[in-house]
Amino acid sequence: MKKISMRTRVLTGGLTLAALGAGAFGAVSANAATPAAPAAAPAAVAKADAAAGNTTQSTHLTIEAATEAAQAALDAAEKENQRVSVAVVDRNGNTIVTLRGDGAGPQSYESAEKKAYTAVSWNAPTSELVKRLENAPNLKDIPGTLFLGGGAPVQVKGAPIAGIGVAGAPSGDLDQKFAQAGVATLD
């Protein structure tokens, strides 16, 4: 086998790098020089503004207010030696904040979110919604809902803007009491 000299290896490596660099530069240059496709002519432009009457505004809790409410609910539970989880969701059911208290059961986290979602969806405390199941038992089959006491809506001018859910206490009445403590901090 023939030995390749150091000089030959350096020259071969240098030429290879130069070729690769030139190819990459050419590809970048070619892409940069390619003209953009012509923009499609705009269709009728819709005027979306409040004056036209085709938009709406909504009120939302800030992260600070949601956290304050969740902490108040958790504090109320801890004062009574209850181990719970608390969730606050926005008007659309998206979770804003959750707090899992020390020693809260593993099921409490998800249950708190579902109670909060249920409360904001129906703009009613979940302890009241449980009563509706007598006349409409299929309500409990709606995905993401949980018809047990412990969910409370947060309202502005009667409209729901958020929901607070508490889960983990031994009764829905206690969970409901703690959720209401969270709502009370927002008044």
Results as ranks from 00 to 15, higher is better:
1 M>H: 08
4 I>A: 01
4 I>H: 02
5 S>N: 03
6 M>A: 15
6 M>Q: 10
13 G>P: 02
13 G>T: 13
14 G>C: 08
22 A>N: 02
25 F>D: 07
26 G>D: 07
29 S>I: 09
30 A>E: 13
34 T>N: 04
39 A>N: 13
44 A>C: 02
46 A>W: 10
49 D>M: 07
51 A>F: 06
52 A>M: 15
59 T>K: 01
62 T>I: 06
63 I>S: 10
67 T>N: 07
67 T>G: 06
70 A>G: 15
73 A>L: 00
74 L>P: 05
79 K>N: 12
83 R>Y: 13
86 V>N: 03
87 A>K: 05
89 V>D: 04
92 N>Q: 11
92 N>I: 12
95 T>W: 08
96 I>A: 00
98 T>E: 06
104 A>D: 02
104 A>Y: 03
107 Q>F: 10
110 E>P: 01
112 A>I: 08
116 A>K: 06
119 A>P: 13
120 V>S: 05
124 A>W: 07
126 T>G: 14
131 K>S: 12
133 L>V: 11
134 E>K: 06
141 D>A: 09
141 D>L: 10
143 P>V: 05
148 L>V: 15
150 G>P: 04
151 G>I: 05
153 P>K: 00
153 P>V: 11
157 K>F: 15
158 G>T: 06
159 A>I: 13
161 I>D: 01
161 I>S: 00
162 A>K: 01
165 G>F: 05
170 P>W: 08
177 K>H: 08
180 Q>A: 04
183 V>L: 01
183 V>W: 00
185 T>K: 13
187 D>C: 13
